[in-house]
């Protein structure tokens, strides 16, 4: 029973691996989408997980149902997310911003419940989910499934490394897209609408149309996250897309700093590092008897790590409310 017995090398390797694994990519893409919605256009979307699900199901069904090729399947996944954006946005974006918020919460749950319903079983395989779509993607992968790939001690199996590589490429492309858009006149209009929609309209900008475009764009990028999830886990199951996931995407965005291009990626990496670090450290501390089981046993660590992340986030909000990358100066303008 001693601190020396703790394997810090193992803990760090695990944490760094998770920080760059496909799960972090899923969170990063979903949060990049939310950043477009909230950070730039000021749209309150509390159902981002619905867009993620639409992307995953669009891609999966294209192959299991319509036998499309994998590239077309990705396009269909994006179209699914875009259609979801239209369904949510067309009726609500003319109204006050609260209406979109309310509708998105409900809609994301509706997607999940429809996908797992018995009537949809012939199409979505209900709660079991889609699996067979993975074959054509495996065929595309340059990595052999059984082999180990990685940099130094950070390793992935070939089957998952494909999702990791594709995922980070998608993240890079999304960031380039966001950076370019936000320095363009398009981005200027979107930011103006976030500040004051009426001012933008008085200057001839069709606020409704721009909000719709932003909702679609952020939703489609979230949909790409869903596809990375599908590739990484080799399955699309409805109960992956539960409502609380949206709030983890929000956490990641706020951690990084709202309205900054890089922030969601940073937030996702830090989040997954922290979660894994706390979990592994806690487990070893209990195993070594440094934390008596009367206080906590290993099965409780999964819950307690969220307490700690929650507390850390609360502290961040006290000492750095703008997140890691956000601008304090901008935040202070709200108080004027």
């Amino acid at each position: 029973m001693s601190l020396a017995a703790i394997d810090w090398g193992f803990i760090l390797t695990q944490s760094v691996t998770q920080a760059f694994d496909f799960n972090a990519v899923v969170y990063a893409l979903a949060a990049i989408g939310l950043n477009i919605h909230f950070g730039y256009a000021g749209l309150l979307n509390f159902g981002q997980v619905g867009f993620v699900a639409m992307g995953a199901y669009g891609m999966g069904l294209s192959i299991t149902l319509w036998q499309l090729n994998p590239f077309l399947a990705v396009v269909v996944g994006m179209i699914f997310a875009a259609i979801f954006a239209l369904i949510l946005g067309l009726p609500t974006l003319r109204l006050r911003s609260d209406y979109l918020a309310i509708v998105t919460i409900a809609a994301a749950e509706i997607v999940r419940l429809i996908a797992r319903s018995t009537v949809m079983r012939p199409i979505t395989r209900g709660a079991e989910g889609l699996n067979e779509f993975i074959g054509p993607f495996r065929d595309l992968s340059p990595f052999s499934p059984g082999q180990i790939y990685g940099i130094g001690p950070i390793e992935w199996r070939g089957s998952q490394f494909f999702a990791v590589v594709v995922g980070w490429i998608l993240v890079a492309l999304s960031l380039l897209l966001v950076a370019q858009l936000m320095r363009s006149p398009w981005g200027r209009v979107v930011k103006a609408i976030r500040e004051d929609e009426d001012a933008a309209r008085a200057l001839g900008k069709n606020a409704y149309w721009y909000k719709l475009q932003a909702l679609i764009l952020g939703g489609v990028i979230g949909g790409l996250g869903g596809m990375v999830q599908a590739l990484g886990n080799a399955t699309v199951q409805p109960d992956f897309f539960v409502a609380p996931l949206t709030f983890f995407f929000w956490l990641v965005l706020i951690l990084g700093g709202v309205g900054r291009v890089w922030a969601p990626v940073f937030g996702a990496v830090v989040y997954w590092f922290m979660i894994t670090f706390i979990q592994n450290t806690g487990r070893q501390l209990v195993d070594e008897g440094l934390i008596p089981t009367s206080i906590m046993d290993t099965s409780q660590i999964d819950q307690i790590r969220f307490w700690i992340v929650g507390a850390a986030l609360a502290l961040l909000m006290v000492f750095r409310p703008q997140g890691f990358f956000g601008s304090r100066e901008e935040m202070a303008l709200d108080a004027r």
Binding site: W186, E195, D196
Partner: peptide, 28 residues
């Protein structure tokens, strides 16, 4: 209605109409 989190010059530039870069694909 000043757009508080845009710079003064960005506020001004927003006012110009018929901007090609305001179209999504052209913006890219």
């Amino acid at each position: 209605k000043a757009l508080t989190k845009l710079s003064v010059v960005e506020n001004m530039k927003l006012g110009a109409t018929h901007q090609r870069g305001e179209h999504f694909f052209a913006a890219l």
